[in-house]
Amino acid sequence: MKTWFLGILVFLSVPAFGAKEIVNVYAWSGEIPDAVITQFQKETGITVNFSTYDSNETLYAKLKAVNNPSYDVIEPSSYYVDRMRREGMLEPLDLSKITNIQYIDPEFLNGDYDPQNKYSMPNLWGVTGIFVNKKYFDPATIQRWSDLWEPRFANQLLLLDDVREVLPMAMMSLGFSANDSNPTDIKLAYEHLLQLRNNIKLFVSDAAASIITDEDATVGMTWNGDLYRAQLDNPNLVFIYPKDGFVIWVDCFAIPKNAPHYQNALKFINFMMRPDIALQSSMAYYYATPNLAAQKLMPANIRTSSIIYPSHDILKNGQFQTDLSEQSLNLYAQYWEMLKLKM
């Protein structure tokens, strides 16, 4: 009887004895292709436990919940790097181990969100703009976020399911900054969004490309990489950089505090920044890479695509998302919830 019971116990605990090299990666869905992970495992012998999230808020909540449930590498957007850094949730990076930093475009280093890149390395970046299916609407008539409020778009719009995309969009349409923290302005933006309710068909973040391709939504907001990908299958799609401003985001690798496999995490991050790997990641989902050496390896049609790599003239209209104070963020979240509740 006893041996039978012990046998089961031993059997159940075997995995704990296996001393395998491990790295636990928690990243945005649709940013790290499987092939890259397989290659990392093959080259280093380190097993990657890979899981994904579809909003910075989810990542933040999980890390807060149990003071890091054993993630080694995370991939917050720049403004969340800022927040986590200030709240002591990140481990400083040993920059001597990240030799591939030499390939990164200096414009993406030493940003305000993380001076001297003590805590983070940029992985991919992109722009949130407007998409239109020209079979249904004339792109020439949609040049600004404010155009989306027109009644002809009743029950048509796709919006990103992300508070830090939708409220800034409303703010820019009213002529405010995308990072506005003035409570009156935030309230105005919320009230403006309430008037958009009839036009909103859906909120979505991580499956937008297929919805756009299959014309389940014909106009709305999207990330430029998603649109490029959708356009390959549906040539009627057009991407527009809104004239009233747009948001530029950078998703960065970081190591959370108390990461159980710090050295492996460094290896993983450095690997992801190798030109041939950065090229693969960027080409898998068509998000722009800040890796200059990887850009040189790209086919000309992608390197020169105005959707993925907008010119400096266009980029002048863009704003990087920055972190907001605790109070402003709470206010954002409250209005976001109220908007959803009133849909």
């Binding site: 909003s55 808020e57 068909k201 859906l202 909120f203 979240a333 976001w336």
Partner: peptide, 21 residues
Amino acid sequence: LGGAKALLLGNLIENQFLLTN
């Protein structure tokens, strides 16, 4: 299937934990 618009109690609970903290 509802485009993340139709909020049920389950969504409300999820939002409190993952979004509004």
